[in-house]
Design a protein around this nucleic acid. Structure first.
Length: 820
DNA sequence: GACCTGCTGCGGTATG
């Protein structure tokens, strides 16, 4: 006899009552939808009880079909819980175990990730727990095991937690593929995702479920709608005298930060880079030694033990403050942090809200975030962020389309796992969002690649990974190929790190090989909050000792650059209106008053329907500065494009500079801005062609190709603890890039490098939108006497790109040849 | 005269 819905809900509600909770409406909605056999996406923030929403649903559904659950338990895996962060596993495990224990269900809960001991993993292979908590990568490793089919036959549910973190990344694509296979292996499977608020939630559901219409129709989108009050406070100094016009560190406001730390139980200080994190920590220790032992530091390159120690110290409130990077965006759930400080522009609304949400982490509590502007113009950003909190207009996460490198890796995974039949797998692939538009030719190309290598690599055996058996099954039988594949699964490609250790043995963390290679014996550098003397590089280990020297260089990393998001750019443009003299009298406006007056005297404050261009002459030459507020990638491309278009009117050399707010073109020759405007050089027409001619797209694509080559398995990164040096890796991937460029430009992986360049490094769509917008704006050209306050951060930018007139002439000639 | 940049995340063999 089956239990009805009312009886089932009773089981859950009794448990909730025991705990002293009441179920939220969104939790009950989730139970309801799941019991009705639906797939879905749940939009709920961390700490809202989202784990209980889905895990309870899964359990109730099992009980529904197995009423004598307390005595008779079917063996085997019933649900998989995917988390993008290993460190979240334990919490999910505890939450889940608490519920099944509470209702007396003999379910077992297990974790499988890189941290799981070998013995435990072997045990799992013999007998899987009822719930397995794992990562996308570990799931694929399971899919690569010989008898994986037997694990998944009775799988009822897969939950992708933090789906917004995966969406828009290649890990997300890998997840789509994993889901597609599990749907093929298990008829009863329900697919659920959990996502924080993003701009494109509907699309997030689509990507999760694939393009099968009937599956989408059987799905729901449930929004938790838990209102969260967020209070934003700008950190503004008493006097603006020492406030820099440019800069990004914000150290001049350290005293104000210490006041906040002292008046709060616990504070997280978010910085934008690891080097900045080191500098802030160092600064606090030297200027406020009384804080020693009360303030810690946390970023991605610090050794794991230290990080875990810090996270626990935050949890049990034994720390006053912690300086960190995005490494603390997630994790440390339910930690009682009282106050958040954001140092410098957060670059996006979603990131700002997420960080704000780390404080007041209990229902009904207000989150408090202090924003620290690192230079004068960031006061406008401070003001825009206040508005961002009320409008909650968060960014989209754009999913990848036709990611051939991940597909090729996946096909090899299936080939390792005992083999696959293309006809069986192709429909599954076609049903994913990422590969919905793949053509049969492209599919065949991928199959050929793994069997024969690409057309220009056919004579090299190492690229022939897969063989076709008589019945048409694609398999990898070579043990070495299989092993190398397992070693290199996943889509995260990072620079090769060097381990930093004391000569005496203590492990401190890791730094990029690139930084270490610049050091010589005796050099002193700051890392992990310590001042260290470099002694020698031994293999991939940098040996160091403590140093008492005062002067030291700060470690830095070649991390990726985050441009200002479109949403925040738009808010910024809108916010300008409040900064005209005589308008609102907020603290930000008051603080910026002197600069605004000066800006208005020399030029104007552009309003939302105006596009400002300033020109002026200095010792350096003739400057033209443009202010689209579209983030540095778009500005870099736009600067190159306009410089190129002007050079078509007359041969001229430009230096380019750009930041998140605008860009500058500079020449030692005078050029006529009126002519630029008359010729409509800001038009989106011919954009792609002009970008091709003005950007060094080949160089950018070459860099992108390295990751693609690694993910698709064309380049091997080495054995653990014996990693191949970045330089060698680059050499081999560059070699392939050139072979493809010269011999087979139709190569899908080679083409993918260009697609990714235009989409991510140039943000072509956004550039196009920006140019369209400018077409509809009133263009205001101000011929100024001297540099304006707005232009200052841009023109002093040390990043200069020389685009020589000669090179341009070459390009023009080439283009002319093409037209003839 | 003001200035020095660039996040996060996962995985793991064979052999001595």
């Amino acid at each position: 006899m089956k239990l009805n819905k009312k009886q089932l809900f009773h089981i859950a509600e009794d448990f909730f009552q025991q705990q002293g909770w009441t179920a939220f409406p969104f939790q009950k909605m989730t139970w309801d939808a799941f019991l009705a056999g639906k797939h879905g996406l749940l939009n709920a923030p961390t700490g809202s009880g989202k784990t209980y929403a889905l895990w309870v649903a899964i359990v109730l559904n099992y009980i529904k079909n197995n009423p004598d659950y307390k005595t008779k338990l079917k063996k085997g895996l019933k649900a998989i819980w995917i988390t993008p962060l290993r460190s979240l596993s334990n919490e999910i495990e505890q939450t889940s175990q608490r519920f099944v224990d509470g209702i007396g269900l003999p379910f077992t809960v297990g974790i499988r990730s890189g941290d799981t001991p070998t013995a435990e993993r072997k045990k799992q292979m013999k007998s899987m727990p009822d719930l397995l908590i794992t990562t996308p990568e570990s799931l694929h490793l399971l899919l690569a095991s010989k008898d994986h089919q037997k694990f998944f036959g009775n799988l009822n549910a897969i939950v992708i937690d933090e789906w917004h973190e995966l969406l828009g990344t290649k890990r997300g694509v890998q997840m789509e593929l994993g889901i597609s296979r599990l749907l093929g292996l298990s008829q009863e499977l329900r697919v659920w995702g959990i996502s924080a608020t993003i701009g494109n939630l509907e699309q997030a559901r689509q990507v999760l479920l694939g393009v099968d219409e009937s599956r989408f129709r059987e799905s729901v989108l449930i929004k938790a709608n838990l209102k969260k009050e967020i209070e934003v406070k700008s950190i503004i100094p008493e006097s603006m005298d020492k406030f820099p016009w440019r800069g990004h560190l914000g150290l001049h406001l350290m005293k104000e930060v210490v006041d906040i730390i002292n008046s709060s139980k616990s504070t997280l200080i978010f910085t934008n880079t690891r080097a900045q994190c080191e500098l802030w920590f160092q600064g606090l220790m030297t200027n406020f030694p009384e804080l020693a032992g009360e303030v810690a530091m946390h970023h991605g390159s610090i050794n794991k033990e230290t990080r875990i120690w810090v996270e626990n110290a935050i949890r049990n409130e034994s720390l006053k403050a912690c300086v960190c990077t995005s490494s603390l965006d997630l994790g440390v759930d339910f930690a009682p942090v009282e106050t958040i400080i954001q140092v410098g522009g957060p670059k996006g609304v979603a990131r700002f809200l997420q960080r704000a949400g780390r404080s007041g982490h209990r229902p009904g509590e207000t989150s408090v975030i202090h924003f620290l502007p690192t230079h004068a113009l960031e006061l406008i950003e401070a003001s825009a962020l206040q508005k961002a909190v009320s409008t909650q207009a968060v960014e989209d996460r754009l999913p990848y389309i036709l990611c051939f490198d991940v597909l090729i890796q996946y096909l090899c995974t299936l080939a390792v796992s005992g083999g696959f039949y293309p006809d069986e797998i192709y429909p599954e692939i076609k049903n994913t969002f990422c590969y919905a538009s793949i053509t049969e030719d492209e599919w065949d190309w991928c199959l050929r690649l793994i069997v024969h290598g690409s057309s220009s690599l056919q004579s090299y055996d190492e690229y022939k990974r897969v063989t076709i058996e008589e019945d048409g099954k694609y398999v990898i039988t070579d043990r070495k190929v299989a092993m190398r594949h397992r070693l290199q699964m996943g889509t995260i490609v990072t620079a090769t790190d060097v381990t930093v250790k004391y000569v005496t043995g203590g492990y401190i963390g890791s730094i990029e090989e690139y930084f270490i290679s610049k050091l010589s014996r005796g050099d002193v550098f700051v890392f992990a909050g310590r001042t260290l003397e470099f002694i020698r590089l031994k293999g991939m280990v940098a040996q160091v000792r403590n140093s008492a020297k005062k002067r030291a260089q700060v470690s830095n990393w070649q991390g990726s650059k985050l441009p200002l998001s479109a949403q925040l750019g738009e808010l910024l443009r809108e916010e300008m209106i409040n900064f005209q003299t005589g308008k609102k009298r907020t603290p930000e406006v008051k603080a910026l008053r002197d600069i605004i007056i000066r800006q208005q005297r020399e030029s104007i404050i552009p309003q939302r329907d105006q596009f400002l261009i300033e020109t002026f002459k200095t010792r350096e030459g003739y400057h033209a500065v443009f202010y689209p507020f579209e983030g540095r990638f778009v500005h870099e491309a736009m600067a190159g494009m306009i410089a190129y278009r002007i050079s078509l009117l007359k041969p001229i050399t430009f230096s380019l500079a750009f930041n998140d707010y605008g860009f500058e073109i500079l020449s030692d020759q005078e050029f006529d801005m009126q002519e630029v405007l008359d010729n409509n050089l800001l038009t989106p027409e011919m954009l792609s062609q002009d970008l091709q001619s003005s950007m060094n797209a080949t160089e950018m694509a070459r860099r992108k190709f390295r990751d693609i080559a690694v993910i698709s398995g064309l380049v091997f990164t080495g054995y653990p603890n014996k990693l191949i040096k970045t330089k060698h890796l680059q050499n081999s991937s560059q070699l392939l890039f050139e072979v493809f460029r010269d011999n087979e430009p139709e190569n899908l992986l080679f083409r993918q490098a260009y697609t990714e360049t235009f989409e991510q490094a140039i943000e072509e769509y956004r550039l196009f939108d920006a140019l369209e917008r400018i077409q509809n704006q009133e263009i205001i050209w101000k011929a100024c006497e001297k540099p304006t306050p707005f232009s200052f951060p841009i023109i002093t930018d040390r990043l200069r790109e020389k685009l020589s007139s000669e090179k341009l002439a070459d390009r023009i000639k080439r283009m002319q040849l093409q037209w003839e």
